[in-house]
Amino acid sequence: MRLALWQGYSPAGDRDAALLQAEAALASAGALGAQALVMPETWLPGYNQDISPNNALSADDPVFTRLGRAAASADCALILGYAERDGDHIYNAAICLGPDGEPLAHYRKIQLFGPRERALYRAGDAYVTFPLGAETVALLICYDVEFSSHISSLRAKGVTAIFAPTANMTPFEHVSRATVPAMAANHGVSIVYANYCGSEGDLDYQGHSVIVGPHGEVLAQAGPTPALLIADLPARRPAYISSQNADLRVIE
């Protein structure tokens, strides 16, 4: 399966700019044969924005119809983070629009990071898994992917690939360089980790988005500037897939 991610500067509340970047990235990814493209966390309206009901989107907002048309035109699924408004609550959410443009999956971030996120958002309480191409996919968002128990639970559900929109800032460079590859290797799952780069308000994003294979191999990694990454997931080699979940001895 060929996968892509877009690492870019935050649209910083400019919805038209956000949609144009997503559409351009989709067109390029589709032209290069990618079956799915992952965008950063809360791409709409941008991560470090004053999130409110005024700029949060409902899951059926017309922008997703527009993005669905772009996904269908590119024949490439789109995974995009956004601030979701649902009644009186706001969630840090991600949506997957399938290669036919139709909604395929919806997820709400479980592990909210720091006091700002906990003040803005209500935490999600459920995993989502779905088939895409030859993979069984789950969505996680940023901090979620750093919790081994979540990765282990998803692998137990048959998940083979995790798509993770993120907004990882300095000084947490170790996450993309060490934590994500280790999670992939330890649990035998591929991970697509799509980050911002540049600055947004008082945050400096570290970039270094990464696509990691199921044996922990780094298939593609960005630097600190905008990038479209494309990588083919390798064939799973059973002898190289970690068996630690089955082998674990629980010590009381």
Rank of each mutant, 00 (worst) to 15 (best):
C76F: 13
I95S: 12
N168L: 07
M1F: 04
L20C: 05
R118P: 00
Q35G: 14
F130R: 01
V145W: 04
H187Y: 14
G101C: 07
Y196D: 09
Q7S: 01
A235P: 07
S10H: 02
A24I: 05
V250F: 14
H174Q: 15
P45M: 11
D50S: 10
V175T: 11
A56C: 12
Q206M: 14
F163C: 01
E41W: 13
E117G: 02
H208R: 15
S190P: 04
Q221Y: 10
H89V: 00
L78I: 06
A239H: 11
A235K: 10
Q244H: 15
A194T: 10
S242W: 03
P224W: 01
A72I: 02
P214Y: 00
F130H: 02
A77E: 08
H215T: 14
A178W: 05
L104H: 07
T129A: 01
G101E: 04
Y127E: 08
G30V: 03
L57S: 10
D16W: 04
P99S: 15
S209I: 11
L139I: 12
S10I: 09
D50H: 13
S148W: 09
A119F: 07
A134F: 01
L154G: 10
M1S: 12
A194G: 05
A156T: 06
A123G: 14
I51T: 09
V192G: 03
Y143I: 09
G87M: 02
A29C: 09
A72F: 00
A126L: 08
P99I: 06
A178K: 06
S152T: 14
G198R: 03
V250E: 13
R118G: 06
A93C: 00
E146H: 13
D14K: 11
L26E: 03
Y196W: 11
G13H: 01
D16Q: 06
E102D: 13
Q206N: 12
C76S: 14
M39Q: 04
R237F: 00
A71V: 06
L67F: 02
A59I: 08
E117C: 10
T136I: 05
N48R: 02
R2P: 05
Y127I: 04
L37P: 05
A105W: 06
S148A: 15
I151W: 00
D144P: 13
S58I: 00
L112D: 02
H89I: 00
T65N: 13
I90W: 08
P40G: 04
P226M: 02
L104E: 04
D86K: 15
M39D: 03
H89C: 03
D232W: 06
H174A: 14
L67A: 07
G133P: 09
A29L: 10
V192Q: 03
S149D: 15
A119K: 11
A220I: 09
F64K: 07
H174P: 08
L80A: 05
L57V: 09
E102F: 15
S209P: 08
S242Q: 02
E41I: 01
A164F: 06
N54P: 02
T170M: 00
L78K: 01
D60F: 02
P214H: 09
A126Q: 15
I141H: 08
A222K: 06
P181I: 11
Q49E: 10
L78P: 03
R155H: 08
Q111W: 06
A70L: 08
W6S: 10
R116L: 02
V38H: 03
A25R: 04
D100M: 12
L44E: 04
G124S: 10
A138M: 00
E146I: 14
G46Y: 01
M39S: 05
A17Y: 05
A59D: 11
Y240S: 09
L19I: 10
A119V: 00
